[in-house]
Simulated scan of single mutants.
Amino acid sequence: MINVLFMAPQKSWAAYKTELPAAIAEVGVTAHVSPDIPDEEVDYIVYGPKDTGTDFTAYPRLKAVLGLWAGVESIVGNETLTVPLARMVDPGLANGMVEWVTGHVLRHHLGMDAHIVNPDHLWAPSPPPLARNRRVTILGLGELGTACGTALARLGFDVTGWSRTPRSVPDLRCLAGPSELETAIDGAEILVLLLPLTPETENTLDAPRLARLSPGAVVLNPGRGALVDDTALLAALESGQVGHATLDTFRTEPLPADHPYWQNDQVTVTPHIASATRPDTASVVIAENLRRAIDGAPLLHLVDRSRGY
Rank of each mutant, 00 (worst) to 15 (best):
I75S: 00
P256S: 06
D36K: 13
T160H: 01
A257K: 10
P178E: 05
G142Q: 04
P127I: 10
G225Y: 00
A235V: 00
L155W: 09
L237E: 01
E253N: 06
L130G: 15
G67A: 12
V42S: 08
H115R: 11
V284F: 07
A274Q: 01
W162R: 00
V89Q: 09
A64N: 08
P254G: 03
N118A: 10
E143G: 03
P254Q: 04
D304A: 03
N289I: 00
R173E: 13
P91F: 08
R212Y: 05
A226Y: 06
I116V: 15
V303D: 02
L20K: 06
A147Q: 07
P129T: 13
T281M: 08
V105W: 03
A31P: 04
E238A: 15
E253K: 01
G28P: 04
S283Q: 07
L195S: 02
D39P: 08
H104Y: 15
S12K: 14
R164M: 08
E26Q: 15
T201P: 01
L181F: 11
D90R: 01
A14L: 12
A297H: 12
G243C: 05
P38K: 13
L62V: 04
A176H: 11
M112Q: 15
L234H: 10
D258F: 01
L181I: 00
V105E: 04
P279G: 01
P298N: 06
T52Y: 11
N264A: 11
D258N: 14
L290T: 02
D229G: 05
I273Q: 14
T52Q: 14
L93G: 00
M97H: 02
L5W: 08
T249W: 00
H259D: 11
G223M: 03
D120Y: 14
D36I: 07
I138N: 01
D171S: 12
D186N: 14
T57L: 13
A211Y: 08
P298F: 05
T281D: 04
L300C: 08
G92Y: 09
T52V: 12
G240Q: 08
A94W: 09
A236N: 05
L181Q: 07
Q10D: 15
A151C: 09
F6L: 02
H121F: 15
L122S: 13
T183M: 08
V285L: 09
T201R: 00
G28T: 06
R167A: 12
L122I: 13
H121G: 10
H109I: 06
V218C: 08
T252K: 12
Y309K: 02
G177C: 03
L155T: 10
L300N: 13
T252D: 12
L130A: 13
I75A: 04
S306L: 09
T146M: 04
R292F: 01
L81D: 08
G177I: 09
A207C: 02
M88C: 11
T18E: 14
V89C: 07
P49N: 11
V285A: 07
T183E: 15
T270Q: 02
